[in-house]
Design a protein around this nucleic acid. Structure first.
Lengths: 238, 238
DNA sequence: AAGTGGTCTAGACCACCCG
DNA sequence: GGGTGGTCTAGACCACTTC
């Protein structure tokens, strides 16, 4: 049995999508909703808070609760954006995805890696490079560094399928967030060789740290994308 | 007088930063905090919710409330990232910033612009291009389209100072969020001319829609950055 | 079983916006 | 002044984790 406030939030969401609550006027006030759903006003407010963080509505003290004009639009954006690559998204709807392992080694971390992963110089790390192919065309070249102690037992077959799945399902770690820097750079020798690009073709570089629920850094990576294979989508709701 | 839950949240934040609440063990439970702050548990929970959205703590039912290990680290990241450009950040701490207007026209929107700005073909738009200089060095070339009806009275002097400030202070509109796509591209003729780069120098392109509180799109822009002048920082907390 | 956070109640008063 | 959302109370019961 889901919480009552979530049930109410879902119901109100339905009504907004079906335009039973037209976007041109405010929603019924919280007292009316509390009466309709036979609950207290605090619970209605919790449901509203849920819809606010989902970007569906916004409130104005003294005025009421309103539907965001771009809510219906946003799903269209997301759809339109699906031709682009988000680092957390998969591309499987675009075709056949494959991973080729270029390098897989153990070593000690550099200073930059120590500070990015919050580890000491004597904590061993995996160092691996993978080429991602979409319909046999090279798309990205990813160089990753991960602390061995967080993910013991990682092997080459995990790299060929999904490190993410191994980390979540076998080791039981949960990803919380990420920190990324995106730039345009000139391709290095490895990029030119594996992404099959000339030295005048730009490369989109994503430098990222992925961290777990409690904030422990899990991986530090440099991902290089061919410039003609889309971009990174960033959505920001205030 | 600020709300009690915000006052409590600030106090708890202080204690975490000063390590009076060590990151190695859970925070005092909500009942103890309610007693200490002479308030109800609901108010303590509201304070906790605040700190959760700020990324400071996380909760586990049946276990307690914990400090995120990367909280202290994150402020260092932000500092480190200040050498990079975020489209919402200013660069004034890096030196002298100037804006040169390359183009400023009125016209009707293209189909792509109509769908991005949610306007009709007969709604006029401003079309302007600006070159941003940092210490007299070209950094970015921005091509922007804005609906005239949202921002009446825009003129060239606004472009040279800050369109953002004009929109906020004179027109009274409030920015809510953004939708961006980042790519690496080859420079076009305008880029090469104004960003002073060769055709083998990559360009970082940010295609963006900025929208207002209620979701109305305010501007649709393409911003081109020189590849050697930093990158875009993206922080994502689950 | 004990201890923790999650949800919920039935009110109350306050701050803000509008006519 | 009337209507709206924002905050707050003093409890209650539930769900989950650990012992």
């Amino acid at each position: 049995m889901a919480a009552k406030y979530l049930t109410i939030a879902r119901e109100i969401k339905k009504r907004i999508i079906s335009q039973r609550y037209p976007a041109t006027e405010p929603l019924p006030d919280q007292f009316a909703l509390a009466a309709e759903f036979q609950t207290s006003r605090m619970t209605i407010q919790q449901a509203m808070r849920q819809l606010i963080v989902e970007g569906l509505i916004y409130t104005r003290q003294g005025q009421g609760t309103f539907v965001r004009k771009n809510f219906l639009q946003l799903s269209q954006w997301d759809l339109a954006g699906s031709d682009y690559f988000g680092a957390t998204k998969t591309w499987e709807h675009l075709g056949t995805v494959a991973s080729r392992v270029i390098r897989f080694e153990l070593r000690f971390p550099s200073e930059k890696e120590q500070s990015s992963l919050l580890i000491n110089a004597d904590a061993p790390v995996y160092d691996f490079v993978r080429l991602r192919l979409l319909n046999d065309e090279p798309v990205s070249l990813d160089a990753t560094v991960m602390p061995v102690n967080l993910v013991p037992g990682l092997n080459k077959s995990h790299l060929e399928s999904s490190v993410f799945r191994y980390v979540q399902e076998s080791v039981g770690l949960k990803i919380m967030g990420s920190y990324r820097v995106v730039r345009a750079i000139k391709p290095d020798a490895l990029d030119q060789q594996h992404l099959i690009c000339s030295d005048s073709d730009p490369v989109l570089e994503v430098e990222q740290v992925i961290y777990l629920e409690d904030g422990t850094p899990l991986e530090y990576a440099h991902c290089h994308y061919r410039y003609d294979h889309g971009g990174i989508v960033i959505v920001n709701n205030g």
